[in-house]
Simulated assay, not measured.
Amino acid sequence: MKTVGIPFVLLLLLTSFGCQSKNKSEKPELVQKEELEVSKKESFTESELQKYETAYFASGCFWCVEAIFESVKGVKEVYSGYSGGTENNPTYEQVSYGQTHHAEAVEVYYDPKVISFTQLVQVFFGSHDPTTLNGQGPDRGAQYRSIAFYRNDAEKKIITDYMAKLQAENVYDRPIVTEVKKFDKFYMAEDYHQDYERNHPNNSYIRNVSIPRLNRFKANFQSYLKEGAH
């Protein structure tokens, strides 16, 4: 997207709400007390999660993406992290400032008896703009690129077939630039990033970017939402 002609004030506003802004890098202990007063979330042990399937996606700030998949029925747990690059044990500072080849990504544990991988792919494409190269919303850089990861040929076919369907139906005005990438490894993000939207609803990035994005998704995918997530 060209920025020529966009008022300086608007550019400044977008920058202030970006994922690399001070507001996003704040750790929980620096956030106001009222942001911690949130609803409790069901938790699962590692052994309990092993009963479920996993899927991996990247589509911008992982705070936003985690919250979207958490709202989907059949999804048991979602973790924020890093994937798609070659560097071992990346940190948030390295990834968010484009110092690695990784993207902010999520690991989704889901019950295939309730939600299918095909439906998760639909959630992925329906909750972001897959025609934006190296960015999403106010966030720019390859660390925020769109990636649909697959673990086997069947998952790859589901992704590519759905992309072809979207293109054939002219759902978007521009070509889809989503990477279809073989899953290799997922690195868990630092603890303070997990459930960030839930735990910090008053953070300015959450209020102005994450929550509106989540609400747009909910409006279009009501039949996919968990009970009480409408």
Rank of each mutant, 00 (worst) to 15 (best):
L11I: 13
L13Y: 15
C19Y: 10
C19E: 10
S21D: 10
N23R: 13
K24A: 15
E26N: 08
P28E: 10
K33N: 14
K33F: 14
K41I: 14
L49Q: 04
A55R: 03
G60I: 00
C61K: 02
F62W: 02
V65G: 00
I68A: 03
S71P: 06
S71V: 04
V75H: 00
V78A: 06
G81K: 00
S83K: 03
G84V: 05
Y92N: 09
H101N: 15
V108C: 00
Y109A: 00
Y110F: 14
T118W: 02
Q119V: 09
G126W: 04
T132K: 13
G137Q: 04
R140Q: 14
A142M: 15
Q143A: 10
S146I: 05
A148P: 01
D153V: 11
A154P: 07
E155Q: 15
T160C: 07
L166Y: 01
A168S: 11
E169D: 09
Y172R: 02
T178M: 05
K181R: 13
F183H: 14
H193V: 03
N203S: 11
Y205F: 12
I206Q: 06
N208E: 07
V209D: 03
L214C: 01
R216W: 07
R216V: 09
F217A: 05
A219I: 06
N220E: 12
N220A: 14
Q222P: 07
